[in-house]
């Protein structure tokens, strides 16, 4: 089932808001925010899929957060052939990572909760890039 929330209650907003506020801190001053806010609501092994075009010659910072502490969200970056380019699972569930892109590439980011840490949650992803 693929679903999108048609209504986002005020309490849920507040809860996701605090996650977003924490996540924003990972997009430090060295990076320019891409101006967009991505969030998904996950339960169990559900995964959110974010599609991105990463331009060559750019270093991107991807921050992915959920719950009350860092390290709850696992995210994988895959190319169009589903080759895994990066997984934060290999890096201790790092809440952010830099992707230095040589040539322009379309990727998807799959984000899901670490089942050992959360059964459900609000996932927030933010992106910044270096000039």
């Amino acid at each position: 089932m693929i679903t999108l929330a048609s209504g986002f209650g005020a309490q849920a907003q507040d809860l996701c808001q605090s996650i977003a506020a924490r996540c924003e801190k990972h997009i430090t001053n060295q990076y320019i925010p891409d101006g967009q806010f991505y969030r998904a609501l996950l339960q169990g092994d559900e995964q959110a899929e974010f599609n991105l075009t990463l331009f060559g010659g750019t270093t991107y910072r991807v921050a992915a957060c959920s719950g009350e502490t860092d390290g709850i969200l696992i995210f994988n970056v895959l190319d169009k052939d589903n080759n895994v380019l990066f997984s934060n699972k290999d890096q201790g569930n790092a809440p952010y990572w830099d992707l230095a892109v040589t040539n322009t590439i379309d990727v998807k980011v799959e984000a899901g909760l670490d089942p050992s840490k959360a059964g459900s949650g609000c996932a927030v992803m933010l992106i910044g890039f270096k000039k």
Partner: peptide, 19 residues
Amino acid sequence: SIIALGLSLGLLIASCGGS
């Protein structure tokens, strides 16, 4: 796997609090 971008409000409130 299943992509869920939203669930019911009751779930949202619970879920955003994490577990």
